[in-house]
Amino acid sequence: MDALLLATLIVGGTALLSLPLGRYMTWAMDPTGPAPRRAGLERLFARVAGPLGHEQQGWKQYAIAMLAFNALMFVVSFAFVALQQHLPLNPDAKGAVEASLVFNTVASFTSNTNLQHYSGEVSMSYLSQLLSLMWLQFVSAATGIAALAALARGLAGRPEMGNFLVDLQRATLLVLLPLALIVATLMALGGVPMTLSGAASATTLEGVQQVIARGPVAAFLAIKQLGTNGGGFFGPNCTHPFENPTFWTNGLSMICILLVPMCSVWMFGRIVGRPRHARLVFAVMLVLLFGKIAVAVWFETAPTQAFAALPEVEQVAGNFEGKEMRFGTPYGSGPLWSVLTTCTSNGSVGAMHDSLNPMAGLMPMVGMWLNATFGGVGVGMINMFVYIVVAVFLAGMMVGRTPEYLNRRVEAREMKLAVLTVLAHALFILVGAAVFAATPWGRDTLANWGPHGFSEILYEFSSASANNGSGFEGLGDNTVPWNVATGLVMLLNRYVPILLPLAIAGSLARKRRTAESAGTLGVQDATFGAMLLGTILLVGALTFLPAAVLGPIAEHLLFAQQS
């Protein structure tokens, strides 16, 4: 009961907060009207963007500008991390980082994934953390918001989708930076360290000298949560007491995880001029989110099977393994956080996912497989748009009418691009997991055998492909094969699900507007909501159920047989 009350308060409160912020985000990303102050700001953004800042871009130019900017960020950040031992802001004299780990880390932060095969407090200098990783946390999140704004403009029927470099500045300076400043201040007040001093040294009661890592954690934490980045300043992420000290910082983090992805839905609805459609999409996302929370909490109230053979361990209150008790309730940092962080492609960790009961552990995987129940900032709504295209097409076929979305006909070309987007995600996860499960690349890195071991491999590729970044753990993943494979998956499946939907929007924008008639499929009523929900579940189940059966479901059935 506590868990569901907490979930309702966090999710409901954030949904309410997202209403005015979604309105503000629309104003920030898609200014309309000749407000004089805003016009000055826009001129400044265009000037900063240089000669390219004044042109209006079609989908292809927008996509190329996005890729070129992200490639440049990849190179600059790569140089900072690779050369950190020679650069300033390194008070603890952090050494060189191994080459494949640099590739994985920079690919991870460029792609808004923040999968970490390293521990920040062990490997990264403050310069690497701030100028490379935190900088990428801002611009990668801004890339997602910019891409959604461009997509929405295309769907609104505008032949030009905006200017990427201008949109990037709007998202960074008007949306993410002000929010991050507020949240970082609140986190610092809540006890999160914010200092450029090196590690503290203390003498324990036993007289042992202890080195306590610290740093500019509050700044890092704020954008990591708001930008659905999720990468921890410390290795244990938000289970570390300096990254999440209290019940209140825990609650604030969960709000921040959900906030901007929720605002993205409202922004989309306003730009396409269909706020009622956005309300329906929001409701479908909420249903899926609460469904996953309920299942995860339900299965987590059962004792962990890991202690089943130990009669002296009482587990009347459910599975406490891998939970942080300072957050007041084991469910707040356990199943609730794990579902929120994986539904939103955030990936910060508030409990040990490896310790969740098998069916509770399945829910984070479902979140990453669907990747559209709010999803990443901007990109979650883009993923949902792909499901909408599939749903519209299926609904049109079922009733024998030409499928239409927002007064534009959805034809075979758009459908092919949508299916390719869905299949790319599945392909990266399933092929990657199959190859690593069948070879020493994956097998030699496992901490567990059997279905749980398979879950560890499956989770890692799911996390990489969904640009989530959380770890199931129990996997020795800092090896060359893991670093290269997940690095490539993160980069490819960051941009493919942005490029192809932008192409769909560009294609739809060029089509003649069709008049609404009695036969037009309404995309803002409950029938379409049910159709969309069914499509998401059907596509997800058809694609990933066999893999789920081999991992968490098999493990659950094995435990049920034993007990």
């Binding site: 190329i64 890729l67 790569f78 080459a99 690095g487 980069l491 490819l492 490029l499 192409a503 560009g506």
Partner: peptide
């Protein structure tokens, strides 16, 4: 040296994504 190889790998991935963008655009124009 190995660092340069991984840097090139990342840039090759971005180049492949740009090629994909061009290919989709050409396919749409057909």
């Amino acid at each position: 040296m190995l660092h340069l190889f991984y840097l090139a790998l990342g840039l090759a991935t971005f180049a492949a994504l740009m090629a994909l963008t061009n290919a989709v655009d050409r396919w749409e124009q057909d």
